[in-house]
Structures are given as structure tokens and as C-alpha cells.
Design a protein around this nucleic acid. Structure first.
Length: 601
DNA sequence: CTTTTCACAGTCGCGCGGATGGGA
DNA sequence: TCCCATCCGCGCGACTGTGAAAAG
């Protein structure tokens, strides 16, 4: 068991990162290995901080999983390169037709950011030198005021990213899913900031879905017009405000309607079949939202896992399934929804709405929580009799990763990302999901799955305004954790979100290798869950899983060898389904014959 | 043939209005 | 009895992916 250990953030020391690297050969052949990791050897996990920050010692790691995210080299150049050239951007900067630097005032802020020709092409003829982690001071932020950004729902993004995320665009605008959600730290609590998201081209290619995978197809249409910026509706606001709560861009809509003139501020105009990269901008402004002309203080943060291809209709059925499984709005399309909600209390895959009426609030009002460890488990514990089914519609070749990396790596929420390390547009879109492949994918994954798979709220939990968001005492200490174990209904393993404001803290952090945290955390969760959900995993579940396997939609590409039983996902699920939730021993590895319920059609 | 558009069914959040209960 | 707060049910609208038709 673990108490405060498992929940302590997923801090990962530089040494760990180095170990990770050694233990995880690059998967992406097209990516220069040297670019993947920052030369500083810091783990490029999830926190973006300016490279000049030296404060992220283990002692400063935050229990709420604010992991130092060291820009690993070439950060994509902003569309406002000219404007932001003196900001956080590191490495190679693409000279683009950026924004005017003469912004003055909120109105101008909006106007100048929202329109522009050829906005934000982040792709660039990447030069390898860009991977170097440079030490660029933030001119505007001053000493100790460099923002750190945490992608709250990163595990979900990673999950989508593995299959190449697609985002629907419609004339009336479609919300993103997953949506962008960040935690920010390191701001001046009294200063005012505008926070906005910009969506820029991620590469110079036009894409098409062919043969079960995304392939480039000509050059991107570069003269796309229209709004590319979504300003957070709470802008401007104080640093304290931004750091106090999670910053959600759930209302952001994507459209392909260039002529749209309504809801412009909520819509970002994209082109179908182009790859895009959302970026978070934090601009220090005066109290009334006016930017300081002479001293623009802007920071830009890019998470490669946020890349997506805009589509008018889903191409990859894996993505479709992920959306259905995770997006509460698509609940009606879950083919086992009935069983999920009509099964006996102890046997449900997903808690009924009455378990927590607030648990599925779609858009949290002002704050909600996404504790990474739990979150990842939510993400990874969908109804397994339908998730990653053995008859997946698209062979795994469509995914961004090799099959062997499919199963385990992303199950860990401390998946190492290469961040901006890569840079050739294509390679930069890929994450390194393999760091723990050999060591953990086979041993830890089943923990995660079997520990929570039957009890979590799954997609419902993705929208975090759950009752547990207020249980702030339950996450940071052993005692708190025990309290959590005792009180939290098994159906809603939600975790409180430690206040970044209160908690970027140097205290109460158990400095442990993140890997261990993961293990202990998982075990603790398993223990917690299994104690209260003894009947959650029953043989009948395995049967239903098998049946569900057969019910899966057929691949457009026909059966693939990669969909064979040996391939993985189905196996994992079967194994997870079958594994005894009580077992504290490491589950069998994939190599073991452990799938008696699996039936290969 | 590929891509886009549209109508559709299903789910859920929110707001409104009525019913209920407690206190003055 | 009146006032106020709370609870509950209903309807509307927002949102989702699907699938067929239309457009290119």
C-alpha cells in the first residue's frame, strides 16, 4: 500500500528520465532520437516550463502532479513568431506572418489575434539544431515568474494521439473532444493575464485516410482564413485566478465555415484533412486587459499530443470508438450502455447517473479536477468488452505506434513525450510512448485495467465536476488517502485536485521515482477498489467481453493480421477481465496463455 | 470515388414552475 | 397564514455519432 506515495505526483527525476530513455528505444523511426529528449536529460513529460527554470528539483515537485515539463528543444514557432519571438519559444522559430506586435488593448487583442493570413503555421523546415534545449529567458515574466503549464487530461489526449486524433469540424461548430484543459502555475498572482488557445497548422501536408492509416496527400492549403484563436472567456484575469483553477477550453468549437459571423469568438476555423496543433498562450496584460505595448509578456505552450487532424467525418473507427467511449455526449452510442446501467450495483461497468448526479456534468463551471493518476485510469478503463476489441475496425497499423507499444506505454500516465523535440512535422506529432515498455507494459497495465475497470465512471468521469473535487484532503497524505479509500464510493474514484496555488509546493512531496509511485499507486487503488467491489469482475463479464468482441463493427480494411489474438488489445482486455481483482501479484505477462475466454472469430 | 452536409435519435444539463416543508 | 428555501418533474436546447444523400 502506499498512502501518500502513489498519489504523489508523477514526478520523474532527471535520472529517471535518462533511464527511461535507455529503456525505451525510439519507436518513431523518422524522428531523430536526439531530438526527443532535452539535452538536459529532464523528463519531458507534461509540464512545460521555460528551460531556464532550475527550480524543479525533486523537492519542488508537486503532489498534484505538476511534473516539470522541460521544453525538449525546438518548440514550435508561434504563428506570432514576430510577436512572440522574445517569449518562451525555444529552438527554431519559423518566420511566419504573425500578429502585429502593436497590440494595445483588449479589443485589439482580440482583433489582432483572431484573424490573419496563414496564421500559425508551426510546421517548419525543421533543422535539427532546434532540438537543443535553449536557455531563453522570459523577458516579460521576471524572475521566478515563468509559467508552468500542465495538460490536465493528457492521458486521454495521449490515448487519442496514439491513433492520430481526429476532430470533427462542422459549419455550426463542433466542440473538441478531448478538450483542452490546463493547469497553470508560476504566474504572478497579482498580475493580469489573457489566456487563449491558438490552433495552427502542424505540418505542411494535406492528409487523407487511406488503407487504415493517415497518409500525406499533397500540400496543405495554406491560405486558410478565419479565426484561429479562442480567448478564454475569463480573460483577462489575475494570475491567482488562473492558477486557482483548471483552465478549460471545453466551449471551444471548431468549424470549417469561413464565412461564419456568429459566435466568432467561440469558433476556430480550420480546414478539413489538415493537421493542427493547439497552443496555449498566456499574455500578461494590464488590469483592464490591455497589453503592454513596450513589453509584451507572452508565453506559449505546445503539447504535441494535442495535435489532431480536422475532419468532417471520422475516418479512423478507433477514434470514433474512443470518442464514443469517453465523451458523455456520445453515451447513446455505447452499445453496451444498457448493461452498464442495468446491471446490479456491484456488477456495473459504469455507475448509474444516480451514483453521482454531478459526476457527469459536462462542462464544469469554473473548476474541476483531473487528477492524473486517476484520470489515466479512467481513460484506460472503459468498458472493456467493447474497447479495443479484437475486431477493431482498423488494424493497428493505423495507429501511430507499433503494436508492441500499443498495449502498455500509454497506460501509464507518465508517458514520456518528446514534446517539441522532434520537429520534422511528422515526427513531431508523435509521442514517445515507449519508455516503460519492457518493464511495465506487461506488468503494470493489467493492474490499471483490472483495478478500476469495472468501477470507474469512465467517460462520465472525464468531466470532472464530481463530488470528489472537493475532497481536497484526500490526496496528498497517507491519512487522506485512507480517508479516500474509506469514503469514496467505488463507482466514482475521483480525486480532488490539489490547488496549484496552494500547492506548488515544496512540501509534502515524497520524492520517489515516479515509476514506483505508479506501481504503488496502482496497487493501492487496486486494493481500495477490490475491497469494495468484490463482484465487479465476474466470469460473466468475461463472457460478455467475448460476445462484445464478436459484435464489433468490421474493419473497413478487412481483417488484419494485427488484429489477431496475439495482437494485444483484446488480449489485454481479456487478461484484465479475467485477472482476479484480488490478486496482488503481478499479473501474467502477455506472453502467457491467459485468455481462455477469448474467441477468435 | 471522396468529401461534405443534413436529418435523426439518444443523452444530459439547465431552467422553470409547482409542490413540499420549516420557521416566523 | 404567510414567507422562504428546497426539492422534484418536465420541457427545451445543446451535444453526440450515425447513415444516407448531396456535392465536388
Amino acid at each position: 500500500m502506499l498512502g501518500g506515495e502513489g498519489e504523489s505526483s508523477g514526478y520523474s527525476s532527471a535520472k529517471d528520465a535518462a533511464d527511461e530513455k535507455r529503456a525505451s528505444p525510439a519507436v518513431d523511426g523518422d524522428e531523430p532520437a536526439g531530438n526527443r529528449y532535452p539535452e538536459h536529460g529532464m523528463p519531458s513529460d507534461r509540464f512545460y516550463i521555460p528551460s531556464t527554470i532550475t527550480k524543479h528539483s525533486p523537492e519542488t515537485a508537486n503532489p498534484c502532479s505538476f511534473i516539470p515539463y522541460t521544453p525538449s528543444g525546438a518548440v514550435y514557432p508561434s504563428s506570432g513568431a514576430a510577436r512572440y519571438s522574445s517569449t518562451l519559444h525555444l529552438g527554431s522559430v519559423l518566420p511566419t506572418a504573425g500578429y502585429s506586435s502593436s497590440a494595445a488593448g483588449r479589443s485589439h487583442f482580440s482583433a489582432s489575434y483572431q484573424h490573419g493570413q496563414n496564421l500559425g503555421c508551426i510546421y517548419n523546415p525543421y533543422t535539427a539544431s532546434g532540438s537543443a534545449l535553449s536557455s531563453v529567458a522570459l523577458p516579460g515574466t521576471g524572475p521566478g515568474m515563468r509559467a508552468q503549464v500542465y495538460l490536465c487530461n493528457r492521458p486521454l489526449w495521449v490515448k487519442f494521439h496514439r491513433h492520430q486524433t481526429e476532430m470533427i469540424i462542422t459549419k455550426q461548430g463542433r466542440r473538441m473532444f478531448p478538450f483542452l484543459s490546463f493547469n497553470i502555475a508560476g504566474l504572478n498572482v497579482t498580475a493580469h493575464y489573457n489566456v487563449f488557445v491558438e490552433v495552427v497548422l502542424a505540418d505542411p501536408n494535406h492528409w487523407r485516410f487511406q488503407g487504415g492509416k493517415w497518409v500525406t496527400c499533397g500540400k496543405a492549403d495554406n491560405n486558410n482564413q478565419g479565426n484561429k484563436v479562442y480567448i478564454h472567456p475569463e480573460s483577462p484575469n489575475t494570475g491567482a485566478h488562473w492558477m486557482r483553477q483548471e483552465i478549460s477550453f471545453s466551449k471551444l468549437k471548431l468549424t470549417n465555415n469561413k464565412g461564419t459571423n456568429h459566435n466568432t469568438s467561440q469558433m476556430i476555423v480550420l480546414q478539413s484533412l489538415h493537421k493542427y496543433q493547439p497552443r496555449l498562450h498566456i499574455v500578461e496584460v494590464t488590469e483592464d486587459g490591455v497589453e503592454d505595448n513596450g513589453d509584451v509578456k507572452t508565453q506559449c505552450f505546445t503539447f504535441p499530443e494535442n495535435q489532431f487532424i480536422a475532419v468532417t467525418a471520422y475516418q479512423n473507427t478507433d477514434i470514433t470508438q474512443l470518442k464514443i467511449d469517453h465523451n458523455p455526449f456520445a453515451k447513446g452510442f455505447r452499445d453496451n450502455y444498457d448493461s452498464m446501467y442495468t446491471a446490479p450495483e456491484n456488477d456495473r461497468l459504469t455507475p448509474s447517473p444516480t451514483d453521482s448526479p454531478r459526476a457527469h456534468q459536462i462542462v464544469p463551471g469554473t473548476r474541476y479536477t483531473m487528477q492524473p493518476l486517476f484520470q489515466d485510469q479512467f481513460v484506460n478503463n472503459l468498458p472493456q468488452n467493447r474497447f479495443y476489441n479484437c475486431e477493431r475496425a482498423v488494424p493497428q497499423t493505423s495507429s501511430l505506434l507499433s503494436p508492441q507499444t500499443e498495449d502498455g506505454a500509454s497506460q501509464r500516465w507518465f508517458v514520456t513525450s518528446m514534446q517539441q523535440g522532434g520537429n520534422s512535422s511528422a515526427s513531431s506529432s508523435k509521442l514517445d510512448l515507449t519508455p516503460y515498455e519492457g518493464e511495465y507494459s506487461s506488468s503494470l497495465l493489467p493492474y490499471g485495467i483490472k483495478s478500476l475497470s469495472m468501477q470507474t465512471t469512465h467517460a462520465l468521469s472525464y468531466y470532472p465536476d464530481s463530488p470528489f473535487t472537493t475532497m481536497s484532503a484526500g490526496w496528498g497524505s497517507r491519512a487522506g488517502y485512507q480517508t479516500y479509500q474509506r469514503k469514496v464510493p467505488p463507482s466514482l474514484p475521483w480525486s480532488p485536485r490539489p490547488s496549484p496555488t496552494a500547492g506548488f509546493p515544496e512540501e509534502s512531496v515524497k520524492v520517489k521515482p515516479q515509476v514506483q509511485d505508479e506501481v504503488t499507486g496502482s496497487e493501492a487503488l487496486i486494493s481500495s477498489w477490490t475491497e469494495t467491489q468484490s463482484s465487479a469482475l465476474s466470469p460473466s463479464k468475461a463472457d460478455s467481453f467475448s460476445i462484445a468482441c464478436k459484435r464489433r463493427r468490421l474493419s473497413l480494411n478487412g481483417p488484419s493480421s494485427e488484429d489477431s489474438p496475439a495482437n494485444g488489445k483484446c488480449e489485454e482486455l481479456a487478461a484484465a477481465t479475467i485477472s482476479s481483482p484480488y490478486s496482488k501479484e503481478p499479473p501474467p505477462t502477455k506472453s502467457m496463455s491467459y485468455y481462455p475466454f477469448y474467441t477468435n472469430p
